[in-house]
Amino acid sequence: MAGQTVEVEVPMRWADMDAYGHINNVNIVRMMEEARIAAFGVPGGTGRPGAEPAVDLFSTVPADTQTLVVEHRVRYVRPLDYRNVPARVSVWVASAKAASFELAYVFRDPVDGHECVRATTTLAFFSTTEQRLLRVPAEHRAALAAYAGEPLFT
């Protein structure tokens, strides 16, 4: 991987568990959001969590700009069993284009270290004033480049 990977921990909640004792697929998408925020920060204008992100990439967008999810892709490699400790998640930039970028995630079991989930989220900046997608600003492209790695799905 060429760039840096951000390593974060995402809590597993009792309510995330399904009848089989592993994290339900719907809750994996919520955990992806938590990993993204822990790694790269909250979108500008949406508030700030108690802990600072590992790398603050998203809080500097203009007030009239939203950071929107375009697409999620999730591959369940093996069940992520509920544990009373946080899941370990690696997050990096899988690709960056003119008007969107893709973050990649690998979820690992916090006890045995096995890879459980491989996922991506495509994000884009949207102008609420102009009601259109925006190009990724140069300063964000440069910041994303520092965390650019290999695509997760080919």
Rank of each mutant, 00 (worst) to 15 (best):
A2P: 06
G3S: 06
V6Y: 03
E7H: 13
P11Y: 14
M12E: 10
W14G: 01
A15R: 15
D16W: 05
M17Y: 05
D18C: 06
I23R: 01
I23Y: 00
N24S: 10
V29T: 15
V29N: 12
M31L: 11
E34M: 09
E34I: 00
A35Y: 09
A39R: 03
A39E: 06
G41Y: 04
G44R: 03
T46C: 12
P49H: 13
A51N: 10
E52I: 01
A54V: 14
V55C: 09
D56R: 03
D56W: 00
L57P: 06
F58G: 00
S59W: 04
T60S: 12
V61C: 08
A63L: 11
T65V: 14
L68G: 07
V70P: 02
R73E: 08
R73V: 09
R75W: 00
R75Y: 00
R88Q: 12
V91F: 02
V91H: 04
V93A: 03
A96L: 07
A96E: 09
E102F: 03
A104E: 02
A104Y: 01
Y105T: 03
V111W: 03
D112H: 04
D112W: 02
G113M: 02
H114Q: 13
C116H: 04
A119V: 05
T122W: 01
T122L: 04
L123C: 01
A124Q: 08
F125M: 09
F126D: 02
L134A: 05
V136I: 13
P137A: 02
E139T: 15
E139L: 14
H140T: 13
A142R: 14
A148E: 15
E150P: 11
